[in-house]
Design a protein around this nucleic acid. Structure first.
Lengths: 124, 124
DNA sequence: GCTTGCTTTAGAGTGCACTATAAGGAGTAT
DNA sequence: ATACTCCTTATAGTGCACTCTAAAGCAAGC
């Protein structure tokens, strides 16, 4: 009685819609998922890890084209570990820049809030 | 001989394309820009500040619909200062959450890089 | 055996934020 | 006066990342 995970299960676990899960598979972000006798998708625990990681890449604004490259490298096996590391290190830099820019912009927003607060105090 | 700023100037200063500048004005992110005798846009220093700030809102992922609300409040004058402050404070929270989530995801990316580095060391 | 509810696929549609095109007007240069 | 280069408007097109629809298959319950 091994646990088989349907597309609905995976949708509930990952938060991605079933549409998105099929879409990601079709465009090659996910390796072809195993099928049962009916042709229904049967997800493994390993598939869940993959999906969780690619969600993190998406959430840090890696474009789908780049995630696809990463997935293809993974499918090519151990010989691509260095390329995968390099791809992630490049992305790491992007994420750091994103954080820095958000922080800079946040400072300006804070200044504006402070300005408005001052105006409110003057009006009272 | 006062300096008049054309749409090209503003494009160069702000980094937004002329298309985008006209688009932002049309949908109401920018208050109607002054025109010269030929109907050409004539931007003021104040317009530049407005544009610079709305670029910061965009860069922190405020949707255009929300920036539009903010711009409309500004146009309504001093009585809306509190509403504008509240809108920005709400956005401030969003930006903080974005930063936090990026940092969490970055941690996972870093872990993956460390994992790959370890694999590379074992292969050597 | 038929309905309900899941699954499959290919392909169409959506929403956001631009980005480009087309048609025409005005100012300057030759 | 004609070409060039800017500007204007309205409107059409693009790219990304989904999101949904349509048509059909299978399987359990009544």
């Amino acid at each position: 009685m091994e646990k088989t995970l349907s597309i609905q299960n995976i949708s509930a676990i990952t938060g991605l819609s079933t549409y998105t899960l099929r879409y990601y598979e079709k465009i090659g972000l996910l390796s072809a998922i195993e099928r049962d006798a009916n042709g229904y998708r049967k997800y493994s625990m390993d598939d869940i890890s993959c999906i969780d990681f690619l969600i993190k890449l998406r959430n840090t604004d890696m474009p789908i084209s780049e995630i696809k490259k990463f997935s293809e490298l993974r499918r090519q096996g151990n010989s691509t570990v260095t390329l995968r590391r390099e791809l992630l290190e490049n992305h790491q830099e992007n994420v750091l820049n994103q954080i820095r820019e958000l922080e800079n912009n946040l400072t300006k927003i804070n200044e504006k809030i402070a300005h408005y607060t001052k105006l409110e105090e003057q009006t009272n």
